[in-house]
Design a protein around this nucleic acid. Structure first.
Lengths: 108, 108
DNA sequence: TTATATACCTAGATAGACTAGGTATTGCCA
DNA sequence: TGGCAATACCTAGTCTATCTAGGTATATAA
């Protein structure tokens, strides 16, 4: 149903998480869970390919950092990513409004 | 991203259209367009398989009627379909709330 | 020492929606 | 009268977002 490219909610959510602070992959999963009040539990198999796609597209950049002997890969949103985020947010709002319009439609 | 079975928005929209009145397939497309203020343009290739699936699942029943020399296949929502609609509507609301929570999250 | 949590990654499967085709009738316009 | 657009139905095959299920490795708690 016109699931257009800029309506991919996973990318919207990931970009949204990165607005304001850099995060590493694993952290995004827990952050998403926290910010959505446990509604979303993104799978690693979903996240990592999306991060790779976002980096290839120039929407995020990455760098590595040490913490507790572990290497973490942090992601930072780019200017292009912020623009993309704004567009996807707008698309989401149009989509949600559309669904709500249909659901609340009163004949007559 | 946990796109669970009861979060299929197409079925939600179709069932929602059928609540209140019987419709035939082609009409659902124009109705959906109207009720969503032209946000949604469901493709026939999307709709008809969904209708078949809904009928097989007992969520709708169908009957044929003549109009202008054309045969139209009308669909009517069943009691089971109404229950399903209520569940999917609830799921949609949880999902939309989740996305909005993440989008509007203010750190601190 | 063994299990759990943290932290990264990928190949292949699943499934919802689309593309692109098909059939047939009605109504309009040139 | 001829032809095209709109109406009305349908399906096989494709695309792709997400999930499943696996892999590697380190730190920490039981």
């Amino acid at each position: 149903m016109e699931r257009k490219k800029n309506l991919e909610h996973t990318t919207l959510l990931v970009l949204s998480l990165l607005k304001g602070q850099d995060l590493y992959g694993y952290q995004m999963i827990t952050e998403l869970e926290r910010r959505s009040n446990s509604t979303f539990h993104m799978k690693e198999g979903t996240l990592y390919p999306v991060l790779k796609k976002l980096e290839n597209g120039g929407y995020v950049t990455s760098y590595e950092a040490e913490a507790n002997g572990r290497t973490r890969k942090y992601y930072r949103i780019t200017k292009s990513g912020l623009k993309q985020l704004a567009e996807e947010k707008e698309s989401w709002e149009v989509y949600a409004d559309g669904v709500n319009s249909v659901l609340s439609f009163m004949p007559g």
